Computed example of a mutant assay.
Amino acid sequence: MTITTCQTAILPDLNVPVVIGYFQSLNAGDCQQTAQHFAPYGELHPPFQGGIVGVEAIQAYLEAEAQGLTCFPEQATVQTAGDGCQLVQVRGHVKTPYFSVPVTWTFNLNSHSQIERVEIRLLASPEQLLELQQFA
């Protein structure tokens, strides 16, 4: 297993095109393109939600819930297995029109460089999460 760490504002040294494409298309508001980065059976696990499974379901979810979000990936760690699958962990923050919150994204990529699963976790304290409730 190879471990690579990089730290930049836009992560140009990440060298995992599907993850970079995910952030670029999501930040551009292109939910269809973002969903296309997933395997047909791919899963999106947003905070406080069950898993969203399948490209069409992920696109519909993003169109309903991700408008106006901007992701700022700041640090990434990549682990590559011998079979070509990768685990990519990214720390950064998400900005909405109402607030900004620190998050981690954990991407599981298959050997075809498709997202099998991405889990998004908020890194906010319980007090910060309570403050965010007013915007929900």
Rank of each mutant, 00 (worst) to 15 (best):
I3E: 10
T4S: 15
T4M: 13
T4R: 13
T5N: 07
T8R: 15
T8N: 08
A9D: 07
A9Q: 12
I10C: 02
I10G: 00
L11H: 01
L11F: 01
L11R: 02
P12C: 13
D13K: 12
D13A: 15
N15C: 09
N15F: 04
V16T: 12
V18C: 10
V19Q: 03
I20Y: 01
G21L: 02
Q24S: 03
Q24A: 13
S25H: 09
S25G: 06
S25C: 06
L26K: 12
L26M: 06
N27R: 08
A28K: 05
C31R: 01
Q32R: 02
T34L: 06
A35R: 01
A35E: 01
Q36I: 00
Q36V: 02
H37P: 13
F38H: 11
F38Q: 04
F38S: 03
F38T: 01
A39S: 09
P40H: 11
P40G: 07
P40S: 13
G42D: 04
H45S: 15
P47R: 01
F48M: 03
G50V: 02
G51E: 01
G51K: 11
I52L: 03
V53D: 00
A57Y: 10
I58A: 04
Q59A: 04
A60N: 15
Y61K: 09
Y61L: 03
L62V: 13
E65H: 12
A66C: 07
A66Y: 13
A66R: 06
G68R: 07
T70A: 12
P73D: 15
Q75K: 06
Q75H: 11
T77E: 14
T77N: 13
T80L: 11
G82Q: 08
G82F: 06
D83M: 09
D83L: 11
Q86E: 05
Q86L: 05
Q89Y: 01
H93M: 13
H93A: 14
V94E: 11
V94K: 05
K95I: 03
S100T: 10
S100Q: 09
V103S: 02
T104L: 05
W105D: 14
F107L: 09
N108S: 13
N110P: 00
S111R: 14
H112K: 12
H112E: 07
Q114S: 14
Q114D: 05
I120N: 08
L122G: 09
L122S: 13
L123K: 05
L123P: 12
L123W: 06
A124S: 15
A124R: 05
A124K: 05
A124N: 10
S125V: 09
P126S: 14
P126M: 11
E127I: 07
E127Y: 11
E127R: 15
Q128W: 06
L129E: 14
L132G: 01
Q133A: 14
A136G: 11
